[in-house]
């Protein structure tokens, strides 16, 4: 099911937005190439929200321990993260970002 997240321009280029839905939380990204991606909101290392982190290209760095993930694949790229992040399909239609859950 596709769920509306926000307007596309609410996320800056190379930035991330927190999106809470029911009892779950997600991080929705806009990369330097103007592409949108979504992952689980919390880092897989410890429960810190990635939306406070730094997006560099298509990489998100966790704000607490500087672990890194590729937001396109969820792949863990730098310690202390060892477990990949779950990703979700995203689409942009008529200027609105949707995530499929």
């Amino acid at each position: 099911m596709w769920i509306e997240v926000c307007k596309a321009d609410e996320i800056d280029e190379e930035d991330v937005l927190r999106f809470d839905h029911e009892d779950r939380t997600f991080a929705v990204y806009r990369t330097d190439k103007d592409e949108y991606y979504a992952t689980d909101g919390y880092c897989t290392h410890e429960k810190f929200h990635l939306s406070n982190g730094l997006v560099m290209g298509s990489t998100i760095e966790c704000p607490k321990h500087n672990g890194r993930f590729d937001v396109m694949t969820g792949q863990a790229k730098r310690a202390p993260v060892c477990v990949d992040l779950k990703t979700y399909p995203v689409k942009v239609e008529n200027g609105t970002v949707y995530i499929e859950l």
């Binding site: 290392h45 410890e46 607490k64 321990h65 310690a79 202390p80």
Partner: peptide, 10 residues
């Protein structure tokens, strides 16, 4: 020490 320091920050 990388992991020790990670714990220090947690």
């Amino acid at each position: 020490w990388r992991w020790s320091h990670t714990r220090h920050h947690t």
